[in-house]
Simulated scan of single mutants.
Amino acid sequence: MNKFKLVFKTPCHTWDIENLMSCIFGIKSSDVRVYFDLLINGPSKISDIAKRIDRERSTVQRAVQNLLTAGLVTRKQVNLKEGGYYYIYEAIPFEDVKKIIKENIEEWSKNMITWINNISLEDIKKEMGE
């Protein structure tokens, strides 16, 4: 795999998909790893994810909760015949994630352009106490 395809260098930061998703969705890099595990391996129980990524079940549970809050995974309850239930988690399609990221970047860009257009030299002088 071409590493440069997954990295974007800007003057102040080098982006990879993990830190970009962390920034856009307000999640941890470990949460992003859980998202990609679900995306690659399909719908799974917490215990199966934990085994695959070699993390404690409680750590994976927290990551999945963060992903649910961010809208990156869905949860389905599976009822057992003998009583009880368990949950299966599934990653939303990566194309949906890319669309959300692009929309956020476009909004950020518009806001930054508006902000920078509204800064004057007088504003800078005031800010610097001159």
Score class of each variant (00 low, 15 high):
52 R>W: 03
18 E>K: 09
72 L>Y: 07
91 A>Q: 06
17 I>M: 05
7 V>D: 07
85 Y>N: 06
79 N>H: 14
79 N>C: 08
75 R>T: 15
123 D>K: 06
66 N>G: 07
86 Y>M: 05
4 F>Q: 15
89 Y>D: 00
30 S>G: 03
124 I>W: 06
17 I>G: 05
112 M>H: 12
73 V>R: 01
75 R>E: 15
13 H>W: 10
60 V>T: 03
35 Y>N: 01
75 R>V: 15
46 I>M: 01
18 E>P: 00
6 L>S: 09
108 W>Q: 12
84 G>L: 01
14 T>I: 10
80 L>I: 15
82 E>F: 10
43 P>W: 07
11 P>I: 00
92 I>R: 03
54 D>S: 14
13 H>L: 05
65 Q>I: 05
68 L>E: 14
40 I>G: 05
27 I>W: 08
9 K>L: 01
66 N>I: 03
97 V>N: 03
75 R>M: 15
68 L>I: 07
102 K>D: 13
55 R>M: 09
46 I>R: 04
101 I>S: 04
113 I>Y: 12
44 S>N: 13
101 I>M: 04
54 D>G: 07
125 K>S: 10
111 N>D: 14
130 E>Y: 14
31 D>V: 00
14 T>W: 00
46 I>F: 04
102 K>Y: 12
35 Y>R: 03
119 I>V: 09
72 L>Q: 08
22 S>K: 11
80 L>T: 14
38 L>E: 06
117 N>C: 02
107 E>K: 15
121 L>P: 10
80 L>H: 14
49 I>S: 02
115 W>V: 11
103 E>K: 13
70 A>W: 08
64 V>T: 01
41 N>M: 08
99 K>S: 12
58 S>D: 14
77 Q>I: 14
6 L>R: 10
22 S>D: 07
84 G>R: 02
110 K>Y: 08
91 A>N: 08
28 K>W: 11
47 S>E: 13
25 F>R: 03
80 L>K: 15
2 N>V: 12
59 T>Y: 06
11 P>E: 05
76 K>Y: 07
92 I>A: 00
120 S>D: 08
81 K>E: 15
62 R>W: 06
41 N>H: 13
86 Y>T: 03
66 N>H: 14
6 L>F: 09
78 V>Q: 07
12 C>H: 13
43 P>A: 10
99 K>H: 08
32 V>Q: 01
78 V>S: 06
57 R>K: 11
73 V>Y: 06
10 T>F: 00
45 K>Y: 07
118 N>G: 11
62 R>G: 02
118 N>I: 01
47 S>A: 10
75 R>P: 08
10 T>K: 03
45 K>S: 10
30 S>T: 10
52 R>Y: 02
83 G>A: 05
50 A>Y: 05
51 K>H: 09
33 R>C: 01
72 L>M: 08
